Computed example of a mutant assay.
Amino acid sequence: MTTSRSRGALARLAALHAVGVTLLVAMVAFATPSDADITWSVVPADANGPDGRSVIDLELAGGQQVIEHVAVINRSTQPVDFGIDANDGYLTSKGYFDMRPSDAEPVDGGAWLEVPDKVTTAAGATSVVPVKVSIPQNATPGDHPAGVTASLETISGQVRVQNRVGVRLNIRVTGDYVAKVAVTDVRAEYTGSWNPFAAGSVEVTYTVANAGNVRLVTDNRVLTSTFVGESSWSDPSAAKAREIMPGGSRTFVARVPGAWPLGPIGTTIAAIPSPAGKPVPGVTAERVAIDTTVWALPWPQLALLALLVLAFFAIRVLAAWRRRRIEKLIMLHTRGTPQEA
């Protein structure tokens, strides 16, 4: 039985192409098998060793080849045989970069990488591993994410565990770039407050899909409007959490406060996309907006109004009863008193 822990070390590498990535590499590039005191890291390199990059960005034409390198750093006190693997990359549901399992056949950018099967790294030493990138002549323009990992298998009981640490490759094939998003599966739900003097909120769930061929990040905004005004929400997450691969999608949830239950609440979801990473000259992505309406009936306010009406009539009935009772007492008192001649 073989399991993979790639998500533990590789998942957080989604942020490698965002700001502040160098420190992040140093944080997540270590792996420690549960039954051995072995740690290692993998970083981009040139032929001489680590070169300070956080990810490997490539822009190549169909049919072009290039030799890249990754450095496997053995931080242990013993030599280690690391397995080397290349495969397709993808983003998890939370927006983090990960790779397909090592036993899965690559079908995209990972299939264009050629790496050795293994490398033996001495204690405390660094091995530079060549990565041959060969773009097919008929490769489609746009982004094709991939990655290279150095792995070590360990045995825990009867379970074989594969620990993987890797480097992300952003492979972009030159050609006609398309930056386009679509907003789908929009759902809006109103949540009110039982306090009639407090506004409720609108929770909006929506999916942003990358319908183009380059990586995108989106600035997402939600606007609600009622008869008494508007409320807005802007996505506060970092850019790395909003990255969407070509053909991929992300589902977001926004809660817009300050919505009063006064019938229909108009809701607009806007996604403002831009290319991830370095700008793509001449390529712009249009803003996409979707409108929907959710109904919010003012039950707390109606209940308060009903109570006020009942209280009004109760006070009037009580006042009338007291008035009749006083008049009756006056009449009885008048009858019992002798009249003067």
Rank of each mutant, 00 (worst) to 15 (best):
N195V: 02
G247C: 09
A211G: 14
D185V: 15
L216D: 05
Y206T: 11
N213D: 14
N170Q: 05
R215S: 08
A238T: 08
K180I: 03
G258W: 10
V222R: 09
P236Y: 11
V181M: 07
V181A: 11
V186A: 15
V167G: 00
L262W: 05
L169Y: 09
T191S: 00
S231I: 00
A238G: 15
R250I: 07
V222Q: 12
F197W: 05
G229A: 04
G248P: 12
V173Q: 07
R215T: 07
P261T: 01
V217W: 10
N210V: 07
V173G: 09
G247A: 08
V253N: 08
I244Q: 06
R168V: 05
P236E: 03
K180N: 15
P196V: 09
I244E: 08
E230A: 12
R215E: 09
G212W: 04
I171M: 02
S249D: 09
N210S: 12
R255W: 02
E243L: 11
V204C: 11
L223H: 11
E230H: 10
R242W: 00
W233S: 06
G175T: 10
D219H: 04
I171L: 04
R215W: 11
N170S: 14
S193K: 06
D185K: 14
L216W: 03
N170C: 13
A179V: 02
